[in-house]
Nucleic acid binder design. Structure first.
Length: 193
DNA sequence: AATTAGGAATTTT
DNA sequence: AAAATTCCTAATT
C-alpha cells in the first residue's frame, strides 16, 4: 500500500505499450545499493535505505524514520490508516474505494496543479515499480518519446531536437547529466548523495 | 544521418 | 521570473 502511495506521489506507471521507449540501462547503478527487486523480500534495513533514498531523491516529506523497524512485507501490507497513524505529515494520497478495491487518485504531475516539468515527465516514464533506484536511462526511440512529450504538453511540433535541448538545460541546474561514459541517447538523473 | 552542445530570442506558465 | 520552446551553428559519433 505505501509502496503504491509513493509511486503515485512520485509518478505514474508506463503503459505496457510504451515500455520499450525508455529503457533503464544496467550501467553504473550507484544507488540504491543492491536491494531485492521485490519489496516483499526486503528486511528492515532495506526498507530504511529505500525510504531515505527515495525521500531524498524526490524531495518527499521525511517520513522514513517512522517506519524504522518494518520489514518489506509489513510495509506492503500496510493500510492507509496505518500509514497515516505512523506519519501524520504525509496525508497526500487520496484513496477512493470501489468495491473493496482501493484506487489511488492520481497525485501525479498530470493533474496536480502546475504545468508538468520535463524532468518530471521523464521520471514518470522511468518509475515503474521494478525500476526503483535506477536512474541511468536510455531513450530507445527518441521520436516516440518526443511525440509523447508533445502530446503531454500539447505541443504538436515537438521533436527530439527540441526535447533534447530542454534536457540539456538541466545540465546547468544539476537535475540531469550525461553519465560518466557518455553514450548516445543515454542520460542520468543526478541523485543527491 | 542522427545526436550532442550551447547561444540566443521568444513563448508559455 | 522560471521553464520550455524554437531556431540555429558547429562539432562529434
Amino acid at each position: 500500500m505505501i509502496m503504491r502511495w509513493l509511486v503515485s506521489v512520485v509518478g505514474t506507471r508506463l503503459e505496457a505499450s510504451d515500455r520499450p521507449t525508455i529503457q533503464v540501462s544496467g550501467i553504473g547503478e550507484s544507488s540504491p545499493p543492491a536491494i531485492p527487486s521485490d519489496p516483499i523480500e526486503w528486511n528492515s534495513a532495506n526498507v530504511q535505505k529505500w525510504l531515505l533514498w527515495t525521500e531524498h531523491l524526490y524531495r518527499l516529506p521525511h517520513a522514513g524514520r517512522a517506519f524504522q523497524e518494518l520489514s518489506g512485507k509489513d510495509l506492503c501490507a500496510m493500510s492507509e490508516e496505518h500509514f497515516r497513524q505512523r506519519s501524520p505529515q504525509c496525508s497526500i494520497g487520496d484513496v477512493k474505494t470501489t468495491g473493496g478495491e482501493e484506487l489511488w487518485s492520481e497525485a501525479d504531475s498530470s493533474c496536480s496543479g502546475q504545468p508538468i516539468h520535463l524532468w518530471q515527465f521523464l521520471r514518470e516514464l522511468l518509475l515503474k515499480p521494478h525500476n526503483y533506484g535506477r536512474c541511468i536511462f536510455k531513450i530507445e526511440d527518441s521520436a516516440h518519446v518526443a511525440r509523447l512529450w508533445g502530446l503531454r504538453k500539447n505541443r504538436p511540433a515537438m521533436n527530439y531536437d527540441k526535447l533534447s535541448r530542454s534536457i540539456r538545460q538541466y545540465y546547468k541546474k544539476g537535475i540531469i547529466r550525461k553519465p560518466d561514459v557518455s553514450q548516445r541517447l543515454v542520460y542520468q538523473f543526478v541523485h543527491p548523495v
